[in-house]
């Protein structure tokens, strides 16, 4: 039906005159990377704490940790994102909420997206950390308690160093997921990669070129992350365990 291909479109100056369309894509690319990395740090930090709490012998703490995981795992990301961006500021005290809402919108969008992705992923990271800890032979814990380590020391010096090395492979896939899930954040107006792709469709009426470019950019991110994680995995592998050679 007469689709006119035009790959040169990326080099054209954009309609608003601030950059080329390729420049827009690059802005989105940087936004996707920045968002995903900061959300990942948050997810790793919170997820480790929650994952550990799920395994401690205190019923209240492990119950709270479980509630946390269930809450963030059982609501679609799209809904969570909407709640963080649109609903949360309404629940703040009026003066604080209004001051926040008048601030730079890019900062607001980035914060909402980062918190949302970070918490959503932290629940999944917590599950991986928990299963890593519970896959350790109980003898390790008992032995270290028996030689006089406190519970905190047992976690710090015996169980966590082992568990984290074991969960690197499953965490790799969560790490990859966070980049892909970040594409959802275009729905609150954050100009990341997928959103820039959609903008290109709107501004240039060349949808296929832009889909293809965005898809290739995600593939590139994936390849880079995959190879760096593979390198990490090779370095932390525990001999004698599955995957350890």
């Amino acid at each position: 039906m007469g689709y006119s291909w035009n790959w040169g479109v990326f080099l054209q100056p954009s309609a608003t005159g601030d950059d080329t369309y390729l420049g827009w894509m690059f802005y989105g690319f940087k936004m996707t990377i920045g968002l995903s990395l900061s959300a990942w740090l948050m997810a790793l930090f919170l997820g480790s704490i929650i994952g550990v709490l799920r395994t401690v012998p205190n019923k209240v703490l492990s119950g709270l940790a479980m509630a946390y995981v269930e809450l963030f795992r059982n609501i679609p990301l799209l809904v969570q994102l909407f709640l963080w961006y649109f609903v949360l500021p309404e629940l703040l005290p009026a003066s604080l909420g209004n001051a926040y809402k008048q601030s730079n919108p890019v900062v607001q969008q980035f914060l909402a997206a980062m918190i949302c992705l970070g918490l959503f992923t932290s629940a999944r990271v917590a599950e991986q950390v928990r299963s890593g800890i519970s896959s350790l032979p109980p003898g390790q814990k008992n032995a270290s308690l028996a030689i006089g380590f406190t519970l905190a020391q047992t976690y710090r010096y015996v169980m966590l160093p082992m568990a984290f090395r074991l969960v690197v492979p499953p965490l790799t896939s969560e790490f990859l997921n966070i980049f892909k899930n970040s594409a959802v954040c275009s729905t609150i107006g954050l100009l990341e990669l997928a959103a820039e792709g959609r903008q290109l469709v709107d501004y240039t009426a060349q949808p296929y070129e832009s889909f293809i470019a965005v898809t290739l950019a995600y593939l590139l991110i994936n390849v880079v992350v995959m190879f760096s994680m593979r390198w990490l995995e090779a370095h932390v592998r525990v001999p004698g365990y599955i995957g350890g050679k």
């Binding site: 608003t16 919108p105 890019v106 729905t187 107006g189 100009l191 959103a195 469709v201 501004y203």
Partner: peptide
């Protein structure tokens, strides 16, 4: 997002240096 208004607004902001923060909603 994706409307002619978005384009006009961003261009006006660029041309007249108005310092607006343009939000593009879905």
């Amino acid at each position: 997002a994706g409307t002619t208004s978005e384009r006009l607004l961003r261009k006006m902001n660029e041309d007249k240096k108005m310092g607006m923060n343009v939000i593009s909603a879905k």
